[in-house]
């Protein structure tokens, strides 16, 4: 009964008018994983999540959640899925508790006599119990975000879909959300968490998928992606142009020259070939080194732009 993939899609596509916003992606989120769904703003993460949850109808493609086809199985599957989509949204004049109670009342799969307990447990889990009776409009950005996460945790969930859960949070809040997500993963729940900031989710993810312009350009276990990220060589020399030519001839890619320093991705080039080749070409080598590329480097090369560090 348990599918090895908590989220599976084939050729999932969304067009808004002429614009193709999500271009045929094949998501594979293993059950029990923490899947970082990464990509710059506008790359199609939220639209994908809306399709997964049945809010937006795909233009093409199919998908399933927890092993059941969507949207046909929405009624049976979605109660087991907690979601935060494009930020929290609540009734401004209702308290945090009243807002969660309303969502619990809307859920046909829950027992009314337990509403109060479930609501308070969810509020407690995100540290909002003390502010439960404040009106939502009096909440700070961070409190609103936490209330959104509390709503996602109202009932026991097998899958959590959290779209940019750290948006608008201060560093402390970001750490708390990371801690919360790790805790959920430890309980055996599958978490799909999107972010435009690699650094915010890298430490907690077991798997990563990278979106760029509506396409899924990389996907897999973090360790595998990191290993595949390859190595980068640095040569310090008085003749950087000649050094660059040698590296290019060897088959290195992404060659950068700055002052007396040349950097290049090694790809399939054998490390030990570097020094002899440089010497043979008569390039005076001041220093030579090779580094593992970071995931960040990989994403920069995949998405053609850096992740916005400032948020």
């Amino acid at each position: 009964m348990s599918d090895p993939l908590a989220v599976r899609s084939t050729g999932l596509t969304k067009r808004f008018g002429q614009q193709t916003v999500v271009a045929g992606i094949d998501l594979a989120v293993p059950t029990g994983s923490v899947y970082g769904f990464l990509g710059p703003n506008g790359s199609g993460k939220t639209t994908t999540i809306r399709m997964l949850l049945g809010l937006v109808r795909p233009s093409a493609g199919e998908h399933s959640l927890l092993g059941s086809p969507m949207p046909e199985s929405a009624g049976a599957v979605l109660p087991r899925v907690g979601a935060l989509v494009e930020g929290p949204a609540f009734h401004p004049y209702l308290s945090g508790r009243a807002n969660l109670t309303r969502l619990d009342d809307a859920d046909a799969s829950t027992d009314r006599s337990d509403t109060r307990r479930r609501v308070d447990a969810a509020l407690d889990r995100v540290g909002l119990l003390a502010a439960a009776d404040k009106r939502y409009r009096a909440y700070s950005l961070g409190m609103g975000q936490r209330l959104g996460i509390a709503a996602a945790l109202l009932a026991p969930r097998d899958l959590l879909v959290l779209d940019e859960p750290t948006n608008g949070l201060d560093p402390q809040g970001t750490r708390e959300v990371r801690h919360l997500v790790s805790g959920l993963a430890d309980e055996g729940r599958t978490v799909l968490v999107s972010s435009h900031l690699l650094a915010e989710v890298e430490q907690i993810c077991t798997h990563i998928g990278v979106m760029h312009d509506g396409s899924l350009v990389a996907q897999g276990p973090v360790a595998e992606l990191r290993a595949g990220a390859g190595q980068r060589a640095f040569v310090e020399t008085t003749r950087p142009r000649d050094a660059a030519a040698v590296l290019r001839q060897l088959g290195a890619r992404d060659i950068e020259i700055s002052h007396d320093r040349v950097g290049a991705d090694l790809g399939d080039v054998v490390r030990t070939d570097l020094a002899p080749a440089l010497v043979r070409a008569g390039v005076p080598v001041l220093a030579l080194g090779v580094q593992e590329r970071s995931l960040e480097d990989l994403f920069v090369s995949l998405t053609g732009e850096g992740f916005d560090v400032s948020g």
């Binding site: 949850l53 809010l55 979605l78």
Partner: peptide
């Protein structure tokens, strides 16, 4: 969007 994902048909 949150009512529909509860889900409410």
């Amino acid at each position: 969007r949150y009512l529909l994902t509860v889900p409410v048909a």
